[in-house]
Computed example of a mutant assay.
Amino acid sequence: MVSFIARVEKEGRVFLPVQVREQINIRSRDLLKFCRVGEYIIVEKKYQTCIFCGQRHDLVEFRSKYLCRGCRSGLLGMVSVPVRKAHLQVAHP
């Protein structure tokens, strides 16, 4: 177990040391999930997932939502309206 002491800044920010960020591969702009369990706060890295199947890899972003290529292909097979590639961005886990 790794432990450290950090001060909460006036704005509510807490600094995570490099060693902690490296251990769980936290990079700038990553999402973190905070869970309160009794008097403890658990912090874990939140991964982008497909809104349909929950897969974390091979994602495409569409209007701030993520779809895996398999679900996207399934949806495209259901519609007859052409999808422009300009609306899709590849997401990086």
Rank of each mutant, 00 (worst) to 15 (best):
A86F: 07
I51L: 10
L76N: 07
S3T: 14
K85P: 08
R21A: 09
K33G: 03
V90G: 03
R21Q: 04
V83H: 06
K65N: 15
C53A: 03
H57T: 15
R56D: 10
H92Q: 13
R29G: 00
V20Y: 14
S64N: 15
I26Y: 03
R69M: 13
G70Q: 14
K45N: 03
D30S: 02
R36N: 07
H92N: 11
L31K: 08
E9H: 11
K33I: 08
V83Q: 06
V8W: 03
P93H: 02
G74T: 03
I41M: 09
F62I: 07
I41H: 01
R69E: 15
Y40I: 09
G54E: 10
R21G: 00
N25W: 02
N25S: 07
L88S: 01
F52R: 01
P93S: 09
P82I: 06
V37A: 10
M78P: 00
G12E: 05
F34Y: 07
F4T: 04
S64G: 10
R27G: 13
V81G: 00
S73R: 11
V60A: 02
L31D: 12
K85N: 13
S80Q: 12
D58K: 07
K45W: 06
I42V: 13
F52V: 10
V83S: 03
L75R: 00
R21W: 06
I51H: 02
R36T: 13
F4Q: 01
M1H: 13
I26W: 02
F62E: 01
P93I: 12
A91F: 12
A91Y: 12
R36G: 07
S28H: 10
L76I: 08
Q23R: 13
K46G: 05
I41F: 12
C68G: 01
Q19S: 11
R27C: 05
G77N: 14
F62V: 08
G77P: 01
G74A: 06
C53G: 04
K46M: 13
L76T: 07
I41D: 07
T49H: 11
S3Y: 13
C68F: 04
I24L: 14
M78Y: 12
E61I: 10
K65E: 15
H92W: 13
G77D: 15
